[in-house]
Amino acid sequence: MNTLAQKIIDAHGGLDAWKTFASLTAHLKQGGALWPLKGHGGKLDDTNVTVGLGNEWASHHPFGANGKVTLFRPDKVEIKDGTGRVLEELEMPRASFAGHTLETPWTELQLAYFAGIAMWTYFNMPFLLAAPGVASVQLPDWSENGETWQRLKVTFPKEIATHSTVQTLYVDADGLLKRHDYDVEIAGNTPGAHYISGYTTVSGIKFPTERRIFPRQPDGTSLPEPLVVSIDLSDIKLH
């Protein structure tokens, strides 16, 4: 890893501490224009998520009004009832998004896939910078709202299912995340600027509790509206 990647990991609690845990649970309150645009307004407004730390999997519960539960892995996504019975499943789910644009509606299984890759990525960042096959390189500093942030370009291997192969992290002088840019490949490569704040410390690891995602313009600046996704996190626990 380069020195900036190491600084960011250390600022969030350090890799050794992170590796002592296998999973994480949290409560989510979500909003924004994306969910109704994709045909699923309200379905994930108030839910819980469990993600693997390192191993890539995630589960949302409840998933909608009927108490359903999802299980996302890169090669398969499932929707189960409250007893664990599989109601629907989709193998190689990413292929199902071929030809999609931002406006293309999602099936419930596609929604479960998107929510899975998103929350797994967010909770495992920045410790993903130390994962096998992940490469990073420092970019020129970025000024925004009177602040100067260091930037790190991150390239993911194909084995990791995430928003896009190339992403950019922005961090403050202490190494804490301020912004996270990516292009949502499964939604027509839609560019997003994801703002990060409200840090709390859980078992020695620092986690942001407020996330706001806005459209990103070609010059890298973000638009103040629409609010694409909002995520408020509480009751974070490491296991």
Rank of each mutant, 00 (worst) to 15 (best):
residue 103 E to R: 12
residue 79 I to G: 04
residue 137 V to P: 10
residue 133 G to S: 07
residue 150 Q to C: 07
residue 65 A to S: 15
residue 113 Y to K: 01
residue 71 L to A: 08
residue 96 S to K: 02
residue 93 P to M: 05
residue 140 P to Y: 02
residue 127 F to Q: 02
residue 111 L to H: 01
residue 100 H to N: 14
residue 150 Q to L: 08
residue 138 Q to R: 13
residue 131 A to C: 13
residue 45 D to H: 08
residue 59 S to G: 06
residue 43 K to S: 10
residue 64 G to P: 07
residue 104 T to A: 11
residue 78 E to D: 10
residue 107 T to C: 11
residue 141 D to W: 04
residue 98 A to L: 12
residue 140 P to A: 03
residue 117 I to H: 00
residue 46 D to V: 01
residue 96 S to W: 09
residue 44 L to W: 04
residue 135 A to Q: 14
residue 138 Q to I: 10
residue 107 T to A: 11
residue 131 A to S: 15
residue 78 E to N: 09
residue 75 D to W: 01
residue 130 A to I: 13
residue 96 S to C: 11
residue 87 L to S: 10
residue 62 P to T: 01
residue 145 N to T: 09
residue 131 A to G: 14
residue 116 G to V: 06
residue 128 L to Y: 13
residue 68 K to D: 15
residue 68 K to S: 13
residue 107 T to E: 01
residue 51 V to G: 04
residue 65 A to V: 12
residue 139 L to R: 06
residue 57 W to E: 10
residue 64 G to H: 03
residue 51 V to W: 13
residue 95 A to T: 12
residue 151 R to D: 05
residue 104 T to Q: 04
residue 50 T to Q: 15
residue 150 Q to D: 12
residue 106 W to M: 15
residue 99 G to D: 01
residue 89 E to A: 14
residue 144 E to V: 05
residue 148 T to L: 03
residue 93 P to S: 07
residue 49 V to Q: 10
residue 111 L to Y: 00
residue 86 V to F: 09
residue 105 P to F: 03
residue 67 G to C: 02
residue 100 H to Q: 07
residue 94 R to L: 10
residue 80 K to G: 05
residue 136 S to A: 15
residue 125 M to S: 15
residue 42 G to H: 06
residue 140 P to S: 05
residue 146 G to W: 05
residue 48 N to G: 11
residue 139 L to E: 04
residue 75 D to T: 06
residue 120 W to T: 00
residue 122 Y to M: 10
residue 57 W to F: 12
residue 50 T to N: 11
residue 68 K to L: 13
residue 48 N to P: 09
residue 106 W to I: 08
residue 63 F to Y: 06
residue 138 Q to H: 08
residue 96 S to A: 15
residue 97 F to N: 00
residue 125 M to F: 14
residue 128 L to N: 08
residue 58 A to P: 03
residue 127 F to L: 06
residue 73 R to D: 08
residue 41 G to E: 07
residue 100 H to G: 04
residue 149 W to C: 05
residue 126 P to A: 01
residue 76 K to S: 11
residue 103 E to P: 09
residue 129 L to H: 03
residue 86 V to W: 11
residue 149 W to N: 02
residue 120 W to L: 03
residue 103 E to M: 14
residue 130 A to W: 13
residue 56 E to N: 08
residue 48 N to W: 11
residue 85 R to M: 08
residue 108 E to I: 12
residue 44 L to Q: 02
residue 107 T to Y: 02
residue 132 P to C: 13
residue 143 S to P: 09
residue 43 K to G: 09
residue 113 Y to N: 04
residue 100 H to I: 12
